[in-house]
Write a protein that binds this DNA or RNA. Structure first.
Lengths: 315, 315
DNA sequence: TTGTAGGCGTTATCAC
DNA sequence: GTGATAACGCCTACAA
C-alpha cells in the first residue's frame, strides 16, 4: 500500500501538495488537485490512521464495551448509536467482555489507543475505574453506573419506568400486577422494582415481585395472587413468560397481560405482538452527541415510551 | 500520558534501554531493568499502539464484521473466538453492518488500519471484495462465502447438516418431517435444504419445505401433511415455531417434535429444552488459528453436533 | 500556488 | 550494557 510521500513522487509534486489535495484545503491549483485525487484513487491510496493518531493524539474510534450475556438489546442499541456516530466520521467498535477484569483490560486498551470516547455497559454495577484510565479516556456509562472520576452516566429515570408500567396496567383495569425481574442487585433492576413498589402502594395495590422462571412456581403464584398482568424487567423475560404461559394453556392477553421493556428489535421480530417500553435511543444518542460537543450530556425526555401491542388488554 | 522517551528521561537512561526493559530483551542489567519497570508502572506508562503499528506495519487487532439482523448467534460465536484470540494477544473488535455497502466500507477501514485479520459474516452471499482490499487484508469468511482473491471460507458441511437432521428424526421414528427455513437464497439456507431434500428422498419420505411463519398457515400445513417433526433452519425459527405451536394448543414434543440449529447460548437460555445442532465453534477456532499460523485452514470434524433435549422424542 | 522541515512514539540498527 | 540515530506515514507551520 502506497504512502502519501510515494503518491507525491508519482504525481511529481511534494507531500505537502498531496496533503492539500486530499483534505481539499485552499491554496492549491484545482487542476493539480484533480490530478492528485485521480491518481490517488487509481493507485488505491489509503491514509494510515495510525500516523494521523500519532500526530493528533486522538483516534477517530469510539469504543464500546458490552457484557456478553444477554447482549441482544445492547447490540441493537449500539448499532443504532453507530449510525449516528458515522455522521461524525467516527467508527464504533464493539468489544464483548465477560467480567470486570476483562472490562478493565479493554478500557486500558482503549486508553492506550487514545480512543475518542468509551461507551460502556458495565458487566456489574459500580466497578471502580482507576484514574489512570478516566484521566485520558472520556467515558459514558449506559444502563448501569460506574465509579470513577468524570464518568458520565446516561440513563433513563428507571424508577419512573417502573411507575409508568404500573400506571399503564392500572389504567387498563389491572389490580393484581406481578413484577418479574432478576435477583441481581443491579442499578436498573433495583430502580424499576422501587418504582413498581411505590406506585403499586400509592394506588393501594399489593406489590408482588418474583424472580422465578420456573413454570409451575410461576403459574401457582399467578393463581394464588389472582394476577392479571405481569410487568417484566425486559423483553427477554417477557418472552420466557410467554413461553411458560402458553405451555400451561394460559392465554395472553385473555387471561394474563404481559408487558416487557426495551423494544429490542431482535426479540420483537421473534414475537411482534409483545407490548413493551421502548428505550429512549434517540435521547441517549443526543446526549452522547452533546458530550462529544463538550456539553454535559443533559437531554430532554429521557423516558421509556410504551409501545402498545397485543399482550396487554383492557379488563 | 508519558512517552517512552519521557520515561527514559525520568529514569536517567536512554530510550533504547527503556525499550530493552519493557520487552525484556537481553543485553540489559537486571537492576536497571527492574528500576525502569517499576517507574513505568508508577508513572502509568502505556505504549502507544499507533506508533508500533507505524513501524511494524501491522496492528494487533482482529476485526470482525457481523450483520445487524438476527445477530444473536454471531455475537455468541465471536465472543467465543475472541477468547481464543486473546491467548495470542490479539484483540477482537466487532463492527455491526447492515448492508453490503456498509460491509465494504468497514473492510476498507480494516485494510487502512492494517488489521491483522478480518473475520466476516457477510450480510449477503457472494459479495465481490475488490483486490485493493484482499491484497492487504487476510480475510476469513464465516457462514456465507464472499467473492474475491484469497478469501478463506470456513464452513461446516451444510448439506450434511440437513442430512443429519433428517436422519436423526427418522431414527426416532418420524416419517413426515417438515423443513422450516427462509426465502433468502443464501448459502447455508440452500445447502441445508438440499441436504434435507436428498436425505428425505433417499429414505423414501416426502420433502416438504416451507418459509411461512404465519401461525394458521403453519398449523394447517402440519395437519394436512400429518407432520410429526419440524426441522428449523436455526434456533430463532425454532423458537417462533414453539411460540406458534403452544398458542395453537399443539404440544411439543408430544404432538410435534422441533429441531433447531446453532445451539445459540442466548436463545438456549430463553428456552433450555430446545433440541438443536451445535455449530462447531471449536473446529472453526482451530481453523482460524491454523490460518494465522500460515496454514490453509483445513480442520477436522467441521460438523454440527446434535444436542438432544426435550423438543424431540421417539415416536 | 508549491516545497521543505520538524515532530508524533515506537522499534531497529548501529556504534561505543 | 548502554546510547545515539534513523526510520514508519502523516500533519502543520513556515519558507519560497
Amino acid at each position: 500500500m502506497i504512502s502519501s510521500l510515494e503518491l507525491a513522487r508519482r504525481c511529481g509534486v511534494s507531500q505537502g501538495t498531496v496533503d492539500r489535495a486530499l483534505h481539499d484545503r485552499t491554496g492549491i491549483n484545482p487542476r493539480t488537485r484533480n490530478r492528485i485525487l485521480r491518481l490517488a484513487r487509481q493507485q488505491g491510496y489509503r491514509p494510515h490512521p495510525a500516523a494521523r493518531e500519532l500526530i493528533t493524539g486522538q483516534s477517530q474510534i469510539v469504543g464500546a464495551v458490552v457484557p456478553t450475556v444477554n447482549n441482544i438489546f445492547f447490540m441493537d442499541l449500539f448499532h443504532e448509536l453507530g449510525s449516528r456516530l458515522a455522521e461524525r466520521k467516527l467508527r464504533l467498535q464493539v468489544s464483548p467482555v465477560r467480567d470486570p477484569a476483562d472490562f478493565l483490560a479493554v478500557l486500558e486498551d482503549f486508553a492506550a489507543r487514545r480512543v475518542r470516547l468509551g461507551l460502556v455497559v458495565p458487566p456489574e454495577d459500580y466497578i471502580q475505574i482507576p484514574g489512570a484510565i478516566t484521566g485520558c479516556l472520556p467515558l459514558i456509562s449506559l444502563i448501569s453506573p460506574c465509579r470513577g472520576k468524570g464518568i458520565h452516566f446516561i440513563s433513563a429515570d428507571e424508577e419512573k419506568t417502573g411507575r409508568e408500567a404500573v400506571r399503564h396496567l392500572y389504567n387498563r383495569g389491572h389490580r393484581h400486577i406481578l413484577h418479574l425481574t432478576y435477583e441481581r442487585r443491579a442499578y436498573a433492576i433495583m430502580a424499576r422494582a422501587r418504582g413498581y413498589k411505590r406506585q403499586t402502594r400509592e394506588l393501594g395495590l399489593n406489590a408482588r415481585i418474583t424472580t422465578t422462571l420456573h413454570q409451575k412456581q410461576l403459574i401457582s403464584l399467578l393463581k394464588k395472587e389472582r394476577i392479571t398482568a405481569i410487568f417484566c424487567h425486559n423483553d427477554w423475560l417477557a418472552l420466557t413468560v410467554l413461553l411458560s404461559l402458553s405451555k400451561s394453556g394460559i392465554r395472553v392477553p385473555e387471561d394474563v397481560s404481559v408487558l416487557g421493556v426495551d423494544n429490542s428489535p431482535t426479540l420483537m421480530a421473534l414475537h411482534p405482538g409483545l407490548t413493551t417500553m421502548a428505550y429512549p435511543v434517540g435521547a441517549v444518542g443526543r446526549a452522547i452527541a452533546d458530550i462529544l460537543d463538550g456539553g454535559n450530556g443533559q437531554a430532554q425526555e429521557m423516558e421509556y415510551q410504551i409501545m402498545e401491542r397485543a399482550t396487554v388488554r383492557n379488563l
